[in-house]
């Protein structure tokens, strides 16, 4: 199977595009899971995604899609949203804070156009509130918030979490952001990924904060080997171009 596929790739380079698209469609339609060894499934899946992106880029009209930023609180979702938006529109999306649950309602930035490798894509960016299984108002007291402010923030945070969860079914592509200095195997990450997978929504995992010494992005790769992982620093901008490329080829 692999041998045939490398031939297909070769043919693609030679320009056998329409024919190859038919073949790829065929591979997708038949239950090929039964005879492709497990190790091969991911590379082939990636190839199909990559190829469809290329093909659609050639032959289909571009349409606007929505890109949602998901993850635990404080992993850097808003920092990434701001960087994307600043790079392509010149304005920011939301407020970044070291205090968890700064983003408590979905922040939208509409019609951001990215140009990558001659491809232009337009997207609506959705910066989500961080998802958590608990919100303890006492956690905010140590940042100097008053009792009342902390309780208000906790209340709004729980509503934000519900809103972010409701949106899980409605994004076209998801950036699942993780803090590379933290254990990636959180229930929140597992739940987010499980739901996106169940709906076949394309997923890009972003291993953020790689500027920090403690960062171990390889732990994220080990935890979720079935997904593409892009390592970046939203703070320094390191590797952000790679993220734009990955977005462009996954949509």
């Amino acid at each position: 199977m692999f041998f045939n596929l490398s031939h297909l790739i070769f043919r693609a380079k030679q320009g056998g595009v329409a024919l190859l698209h038919g073949a790829v469609q065929f591979i997708q339609d038949i239950p090929w899971i039964f005879y492709i060894p497990e190790k091969m499934q991911m590379p082939i899946g990636n190839f199909i995604k990559w190829f469809n992106a290329l093909f659609n880029g050639f032959f289909k009209k571009k349409k606007t899609f929505s890109l949602g930023l998901y993850g635990n609180p404080n992993v850097g979702k808003t920092s990434i949203a701001n960087r994307i938006s600043l790079d392509w529109t010149g304005t920011e999306v939301g407020v970044v804070s070291e205090i968890p649950h700064e983003t408590r309602t979905v922040q939208k930035k509409e019609r951001i156009s990215l140009r990558v490798d001659g491809r232009e894509i337009t997207m609506n960016l959705l910066d989500m509130p961080g998802i958590a299984t608990k919100v303890d108002y006492r956690d905010f007291l140590k940042y100097g918030l008053s009792q009342a402010e902390s309780q208000q923030r906790a209340k709004e945070a729980t509503k934000g979490i519900v809103e972010a969860i409701k949106w899980l079914d409605n994004v076209d592509v998801a950036l699942v952001v993780m803090d590379a200095t933290q254990d990636p195997y959180t229930q929140v990450n597992i739940t987010i990924l499980g739901n996106l997978e169940a709906r076949s929504i394309p997923i890009i995992i972003v291993a953020n904060k790689i500027d920090l010494k403690k960062a171990k992005p390889e732990k994220i790769r080990e935890a979720f080997p079935q997904h593409e992982v892009v390592e970046i620093s939203a703070l320094t901008g390191e590797n952000i171009e790679k993220l734009y490329k990955t977005i462009a080829y996954n949509t």
Binding site: I131, T133, I161, V162, I165, K166, L168, Q187, V188, I190, T191, G194, N195, E197, A198
Partner: peptide, 9 residues
């Protein structure tokens, strides 16, 4: 996954 999501909500 859907049950997990519901439980968090």
């Amino acid at each position: 996954p859907v049950e997990e999501k519901l439980l968090i909500e």
